[in-house]
Amino acid sequence: MSEIELSVLSRRRLDRRIESREELEREVAAWEEERNDRRVETRWRFTTADARVRLRRLDPSLPQW
């Protein structure tokens, strides 16, 4: 989920040259405040059941249904 959020940040706020660390901090803070104010949620669609199906061959302790 953090990778999704970092991708959004990169595309929306960091898609240009940032001249200083202070400017970067302001941009990230503004983005974070806006996301929090809007109460943006990440919709995670990869369920535990999906993981068990896709990863069972990698983990012998999982049942082989």
Rank of each mutant, 00 (worst) to 15 (best):
R35P: 05
R39N: 15
R16I: 00
W31C: 10
V40M: 14
N36F: 05
I18V: 15
R39G: 11
E41S: 13
R16G: 03
V40D: 13
R13H: 04
V40Y: 13
V28H: 03
A29G: 09
R11M: 02
V40R: 14
I18M: 03
W31M: 12
R21C: 04
E33V: 08
E41T: 14
R26Y: 06
E19I: 01
R17K: 11
R16E: 05
E25L: 05
A29L: 12
R11V: 00
E34R: 09
E33G: 13
R11S: 05
R16D: 03
W31P: 04
E32W: 06
I18F: 02
E25H: 05
E34S: 08
A30E: 15
A29H: 09
L9D: 03
D15K: 13
E34I: 00
D37E: 12
R13A: 08
W31S: 09
R12A: 04
D15P: 10
D15I: 04
L14M: 15
D15Q: 13
R39D: 15
R38I: 02
I18A: 04
R17I: 02
V28M: 09
S10K: 08
R11E: 06
D37Q: 10
R38A: 13
E34C: 05
S10A: 07
R35W: 09
R13V: 00
E32N: 12
N36W: 07
R11I: 01
N36Q: 14
E34D: 14
S10Y: 06
N36H: 10
D37W: 03
S10C: 06
E25G: 00
S20L: 01
E25P: 02
V28C: 08
E41M: 10
R13I: 00
N36G: 06
E27T: 01
E34V: 02
A30H: 13
R17A: 06
